[in-house]
């Protein structure tokens, strides 16, 4: 069903639990810290947002791509896979599913631009091949519901200041860096984002009663809202010491294949980049 979230593949096939996600993460955590795991993920998300900006893609396309990306890594480990190939393919497939088809070469070129040739060693043939694997991993369920529309609607009902709407939009973008979209329905995420943002409004007192009343009227499970807010706060905590420079070190930990022995090259390239 595409009109009703509760009957969608997102609710019926792709709503996951924290336990499943933690279980799957164990493999990667043998080789890296949890912080490194998330920093690698944030790096890939940054690449996606960068590609989105340079190709002027609607936010929804990137949100769909990142949902595919998190779904992929809910069943696989970073180690032994090629996160940047996965990510590029996610973006390419998302443009098709969101009815904004682009040529595969344009997407690959933009990804190369965004990442740099040191880390991005893939061509169109790699992405065209990986499209099969990604589709299969998604189990061919590709329609994704997002929280942006609910967010905008609720924010305009609530009549919060424009600055808060902007802030809520940014927070929603950041939510796609986390597992939250795999765990909660989109409208609940929208409400949680509003909850979080409403605390941050400059003259919060002016809006306090109105917001309180509104939340009571919503009739939603507040424990879920608080849970999501907490996870968003956790994300911002992990984000504080994120530094793209450390990414090369983390990428090195992913290799399994013996055929992949360009260890030295990457280090060399890294050093060159440092010099710049």
């Amino acid at each position: 069903m595409t009109a009703n979230y509760w009957e969608s593949s997102q609710a019926l096939k792709w709503k996951l639990t924290k336990e499943e996600l933690e279980e799957n993460r164990k493999e990667d955590l043998k080789y890296m810290t949890e912080r490194e795991y998330w920093h690698l993920n944030y790096y890939c998300c940054n690449v996606a947002f960068k590609i989105g900006r340079s190709m002027q893609l609607r936010q929804k396309i990137i949100a769909t791509a990142l949902t595919y990306f998190r779904r992929f890594y809910s069943r696989n480990s970073f180690r032994g896979s090629e996160p940047l190939l996965v990510l590029t393919t996610c973006i390419y497939v998302a443009t098709k599913i969101e009815e904004y088809p682009l040529h595969i070469k344009n997407v690959v070129d933009e990804a190369k631009n965004a990442v740099g040739e040191t880390l991005f060693k893939f061509d169109c043939a790699n992405v065209a091949e990986f499209e099969f694997y990604l589709m299969e991993e998604m189990d061919f369920y590709l329609i994704v519901h997002h929280s942006y529309r609910t967010l905008v609607k609720l924010m305009s009902d609530l009549k919060l200041p424009i600055s808060s709407i902007q802030q809520a939009w940014w927070v929603t973008n950041d939510v796609y860096r986390t597992d939250i979209p795999l765990l909660y329905p989109p409208h609940i995420i929208a409400i949680a984002v509003i909850f979080l943002v409403s605390v941050l409004i400059p003259d919060a007192n002016k809006y306090k009663d109105k917001i309180k009343e509104w939340f009571i009227g919503l009739n939603v499970d507040m424990t879920e809202i608080v849970e999501i807010s907490q996870e968003i706060i956790n994300f911002y905590e992990l984000w504080t010491d994120f530094n793209e420079k450390n990414i090369y070190g983390i990428f090195k930990k992913l290799r399994v294949s013996s055929s992949y022995n360009d260890n030295n090259n990457t280090t060399k390239a890294h050093n060159e980049k440092k010099k710049k």
Partner: peptide
């Protein structure tokens, strides 16, 4: 390219 994932799936 690391093909561990590809090979596992194939």
């Amino acid at each position: 390219m690391d093909r561990t994932y590809h090979n596992k799936k194939d």
